[in-house]
């Protein structure tokens, strides 16, 4: 009672196998973004409020910051959807500043951006409260209630803020911007909230300079907390006693 060979059933098996593989791939690709989103959500669920147990901060080692290198600026522009143009009316969230001591001639180059002060003058002067500081120390602009008066730009000691002078296109959906509002470095809050470093820090590491260290200043085990404890660091315009979140080493 030999069963007749059924070559066609072999064919069916083959088709079934490839169908299963294709289905699995399709299901996988359909579920993947959800899994990724789940991953992001795991970093810090949206409904979980930020806490003042964390104080995000940065240390810039000017000895490691390379003259002529603008990788941090480029990365910031790409991440936040800035044009990269440098006219007087263009937004610049981070810039490289070259400084030279008038007495000794010593030269340094360093990135300058919002210093995320503990006592930010921009927040103090904002009439509507659009300029605000998150519990974790990140200074932001609420684009829904910014009226574009630019008083914060008058008040900022670091010239860290820009006003959007013209209509924008091709924005990064994660970083909404808008004509008529003021904006500045957010420490790449969208990345920080999913446990990533700001784009500038990542770019500096990638270029091999490792001049920027980012992390939680309140966590004694973090690299940035260890570094500010080990080395002499400087706050720009420290005389103003703003307790900046960004500190510099080597100047």
């Amino acid at each position: 009672m030999n069963e007749p060979k059924r070559p066609e059933s072999n064919l069916e098996n083959g088709e079934r196998r490839s169908f299963l593989v294709a289905s699995a791939a399709l299901a996988g690709s359909a579920v993947a973004p959800g899994v990724m989103l789940y991953g992001i959500a795991q970093a810090k669920p949206a409904e979980e409020a930020v806490t003042n147990k964390v104080r995000w901060g940065m240390l810039v080692d000017t000895n490691k910051c390379a003259t002529g290198c603008t990788d941090c600026v480029t990365a910031c522009n790409t991440e936040n959807g800035l044009s990269g143009k440098t006219g007087p009316q263009d937004s610049q969230w981070i810039r490289k500043v070259d400084i030279k001591n008038l007495q000794t001639g010593a030269q340094h180059t360093l990135p300058m951006m919002c210093q995320h002060c503990e006592h930010p003058p921009c927040v103090d002067v904002c009439p509507t409260g659009a300029s605000f500081k998150r519990a974790d120390g990140i200074v932001l602009v609420d684009r829904h209630i910014c009226i574009g008066c630019r008083y914060c730009m008058m008040a900022c000691p670091y010239k860290a803020r820009s006003f959007v002078h013209e209509p924008l296109t091709d924005q990064n959906p994660e970083v909404p911007r808008g004509k008529g509002c003021v904006e500045s470095c957010t420490f790449c809050v969208q990345r920080v909230d999913r446990d990533q470093s700001p784009a500038c820090v990542e770019a500096c590491d990638k270029a091999g300079h490792k001049a920027m260290v980012f992390g939680d200043l309140n966590n004694p085990e973090s690299d940035v907390a260890k570094a500010v404890k080990a080395y002499a660091t400087t706050e720009v315009r420290g005389d103003l006693r703003l307790n900046t979140g960004v500190r510099y080493q080597g100047i």
């Binding site: 904002c126 009439p127 409260g129 509002c181």
Partner: peptide
């Protein structure tokens, strides 16, 4: 001259009392 003059109502309803600009309003 505001960047967002359409938000005048926001300026009238959101006050940051630490801001001298808000006090001016």
């Amino acid at each position: 001259d505001l960047g967002r003059p359409d938000r005048l109502i926001v300026a009238m309803t959101h006050y940051n009392f630490k801001s001298i600009f808000a006090w001016n309003m």
